[in-house]
Amino acid sequence: MTSSSRRVVVAINPAASFGLGSEVGPALVTTLRGLGHEVTSLTEPDFAQLLDATRAALREKPDALVVGGGDGMVNLGVTALEGTRIPLGIVPSGTGNDMARGLSIPIGDTEAAITALTAALHRPPRVIDAGRIAFDGGRARFACILAAGFDALVNERANRMRWPRGRSRYTIALLIELARLRPIEYRLTLDGVEHVERALLVAVANNLSFGGGMKVAPDASLDDGLFDVVLVRPLGRLAFLRIYPRVFAGTHVTDSRVVVHRAREVRIEAAGVVAYADGERIAPLPVDIHMQEGSLRVLA
C-alpha cells in the first residue's frame, strides 16, 4: 500500500443482484482497486448476514466502510459502525436515497458518486449526529428519520401484501390506508415534557427528507444535536391530499396543523403503530429515541 491508498470495506446491497443497482457494487470495487486502495468486498444473501459480515470486517479497523444501495444500506452501515470512529461512505443506488440527498452526494449518477467518494477518502470526514432507538426486546440506530404514523401504516400494510410486486404495492397500500385515514392517539415525551396529541403522523427527524425527497422536516440539521419532531394534526382526506404534495417542497410546515418541536430525547407511545427508521421496520411502539450527537463520521 502507498501513503495515499486506503483500506476500504465495501458492503453491497443483497437485493441489488438485478435492475438499476446491479452494476454499482462491481463498478465501485473496480474503481477503488484501480486507484490502489485495498478493498474487502462483502456480498451476502440477506441483510442479517451482511450486517454480521460487516461487523466482522470492521474489527480489522479499516479506513472506511462504503455502502452501495439505498437508505436501508445506509442504515446497515450506521448500525455496524456504532461505537467506532470509522467513517461511512455512500454510493446511492436505491429508490429513496434520502441520506445521500441530505449529504449532497450525487444521486442517479454512479460515476459522479464514486468520484465524490474517492475524493472524500483523502479529506477529514464530516461529523454528524445519529439516533439510538430502544424498544421492547432490542435497540437500533438510524441517521435519517424515524416515522410512526400514516406512512408507517402504509409500509406495514405493503410489507404484508404478497401481490402486486414492486412500487405499485405501495401505491395500493397508500390508497387503502387513505380510505381508513383516522387520527392516532399519541403520548409523546420530549426532553421529559409529556404531550398528549391526536395526529396522523409523527416523524423524528435527523435529516430533512424521507420517502425519496419528501421534505418532512425541511429545517432539520444533521449536526445540531437535536431532532426535529414533526406532528401532523388531524386532517380530513381532502385536506390531507391537498397538503401531501407540499411535503416535497417542505412548505407544509407553514400550515397551522403541522407542528414542529425540537428535542434530544423522545418517547413515542401509541397503540397499533409500528415505527420505521431509514425505511426499515424497527418495532411496535412504544420506542425511546436518544440523540447521539457527533457520533457518526461520513465521507461527504
Rank of each mutant, 00 (worst) to 15 (best):
A56N: 11
P124M: 08
D228G: 07
G192C: 12
A143I: 12
A134K: 13
F227D: 00
I243Y: 03
D191P: 11
V39S: 03
P106L: 08
G68H: 02
I86Y: 07
G83Y: 10
R141W: 14
R101H: 13
D129E: 10
R141C: 04
D224K: 08
R297E: 15
I176Q: 14
I12Y: 04
N206G: 05
A57K: 05
A199P: 06
D52R: 13
S5A: 15
S93R: 01
K61E: 15
V91N: 01
G166W: 07
R123E: 15
L103D: 01
V29M: 04
I282L: 13
D288Q: 14
T110W: 02
N206R: 08
P164Q: 11
D219A: 13
D136P: 08
V287S: 02
L32G: 00
V247G: 01
G77K: 01
A239I: 00
I176F: 14
L51C: 04
T40A: 12
V10T: 05
A120N: 07
G131K: 05
A53Y: 06
A100S: 12
L28E: 01
D71W: 05
R267F: 01
L32K: 04
T79Q: 13
G279D: 04
N75W: 02
A80L: 06
G72A: 11
A80E: 01
